[in-house]
Design a protein around this nucleic acid. Structure first.
Lengths: 338, 338
DNA sequence: CTGAAAGCGCTAACAC
DNA sequence: GTGTTAGCGCTTTCAG
């Protein structure tokens, strides 16, 4: 537990110089810098982040708030953010709001206000106006991932366009009876993702001159299990069965795959299935999907924060950055049966 | 950003009293405590964790180190730990070592030494002796989850017993040709989990008087995909096919389920399958498994740390706490075909 | 480019 | 029970 003073003594300089040399925040002659670095190394010196934060006002720590941990999308974003932050010398403190509203309140009251963090990343969370206001009042940069938050810079794919792309792929193959497994209303609270995806689906259909059939929609909960049951419902009808399913997430698409199989249908011969995500397992299942890149989203969110926290005040960045997505055609889609 | 001084002024007491009243670390008369609390509330006062840490030496922050984020086991442990820590007013800073060894080194050099954390939880990571030594030298409590670390208190299920239980379930049903999908050697580096599970399997067999057939073992990588390929290998043989598979993880067991299906086999009529974990999806797949409870493991790890950090120095606790596990029989196992 | 010194906002003896 | 005060270990003006 060597302190800065000992390093200063060993290097024969003042503590101020040690601080400058080690943080790189000011000009120090190469010679002294070397001396200081050598001394620090020899003494195993590492700055105390608390003392440093207290004195400088910067914590080099970013708060990340997520609603779930054990879901592919969230953990991927988190992974990306973590890695990127680490590279920048930042720590990541994690707040999981999977619990009740109480937990959420306490997180906002406690950690944001304890000034433990320099900024926060909110993943797929619709923050309330008061939460956003509070953060702004504390001058904490905030970036959202996974859906637009009013007044906040946000990274999000264009859900409507993604859904349209998936649906158009099916239409392009010749399908017209295309079912859609979307989210239940409760999932619409944050960001209206289900609604947007459904809209993209409907737009694509309409543009292609296909009438929208409400009986071809089934809601589910974004899980494999939910997708399975929804698909059984959709595919179990005796006649005029849909020839394709567009699921609003890969997990639901996988559930559909399994449901089709259990019904004795062969994919893609009897029914085509397409999802959204490019989940880890999608390749294994041969699932055609529209990839979004959550790792990249996490990384980008971190980078944005780094820029915002950097001394050089950049030009105002756009409030919402569109994210890339890409159709990945695999073996779960084909022309409809003749 | 009201400071303690303003609160003290508003409440008509000294800063020391405010500190005491708010932290509960000393006796304050109920009357003044109330006054202080009211003042703090009115001013939206929250302690600066940095100042507090610097002065007290406690950070109220726990570091959690994980090798993966997007795997069921790890995210579940993490979730449990997070929730438990939050309840205790602790923050959790996350370090994901999924990158290269460089990252690992930097994590150990940086965060542990930056004294950002009071203690650390290592999930399924075999720490090197020097890493452990370093932590001990810094007097940072350390608890491991998922495998024994020499010289460190660890939470872990008895892998041998778990595997034995799963295997005995199969034996009890009348199976004798029981295959095992275990881990590849690389997964054995940390904690020898694959080896232990294989041993449990072999012991159970031996005890039952069944000879161990090396051709009935197939290694995989703990994923669904890996399990799928391993199972195809095992089940694809023309004759004397195994009547049961014991997979060392539920994900591999699910892969086996899918493989069996693709081979035209009906589970459990033609082949029984059992896994370990009780993964989120296991219920959906009707998979018989031996549940371990990772959320609980995370919670318990947090609790242990809280005790260790508490002022009252408890009696020395056992170095390794055995964890509960439980056979969950579902529909993937049955008597072997006659 | 470098040093001296004044805090950063709190906690913990130590008095009373 | 409560006030006084000396730091915790750094960073950052301000001089030089």
């Amino acid at each position: 537990m060597a302190g800065i003073e000992e390093v200063a003594r060993l290097a024969g300089v003042s503590t101020a110089t040690v601080s400058r040399a080690l943080s790189g925040n000011a000009h120090v002659s190469p010679a002294t810098r070397l001396k200081v670095e050598a001394a620090a190394l020899e003494l195993d010196y590492v700055v105390s982040s608390n003392a440093s934060s207290l004195a400088s006002g910067r914590t080099r720590n970013i708060g990340v708030v997520v609603p779930f941990l054990n879901r592919w999308f969230f953990s991927s974003v988190l992974e990306g953010a973590q890695q990127s932050l680490l590279r920048h010398g930042y720590d990541l403190t994690l707040y999981n709001l999977s619990g009740d509203g109480d937990e959420r309140h306490s997180v906002f009251e406690h950690f944001l206000l304890r000034q433990r963090v320099d900024a926060v990343i909110a993943i797929s969370l619709e923050l309330t106006e008061s939460e956003v206001t509070r953060l702004h009042a504390l001058r904490k940069p905030l970036v959202g991932v996974g859906g637009p938050i009013p007044g906040v810079r946000t990274l999000t794919v264009d859900d409507t366009a993604v859904a349209r792309l998936a649906t158009e792929h099916l239409i392009g193959l010749g399908h017209t009876r295309i079912a859609h497994i979307g989210g239940t209303l409760e999932f619409d609270l944050d960001f209206h993702l289900p609604t947007n995806r459904r809209l993209g689906y409907e737009h694509a259909l309409t543009d292609a001159g296909v009438e929208i059939d409400p009986s071809l929609f089934a809601p589910a909960d974004f899980t494999i299990k939910g997708g399975y049951h929804a698909a059984k419902q959709l595919l179990g009808v005796p006649h005029n069965r849909p020839t394709a399913i567009f699921a609003a997430s890969d997990e639901m698409a996988m559930g559909s795959l399994l449901a089709a199989r259990d019904l004795g249908l062969v994919v893609p011969r009897d029914v085509s299935i397409v999802g959204i995500d490019d989940h880890d397992l999608s390749d294994f299942f041969g699932l055609t999907t529209v990839a979004q890149f959550p790792r990249g989203q996490g990384e980008k969110a971190a980078e944005m924060l780094m820029e915002e926290l950097a001394p050089s005040p950049l030009a105002e960045l756009p409030a919402t950055t569109p994210l890339p997505f890409e159709l990945k055609v695999r073996s779960s889609t084909a022309r409809p049966p003749a």
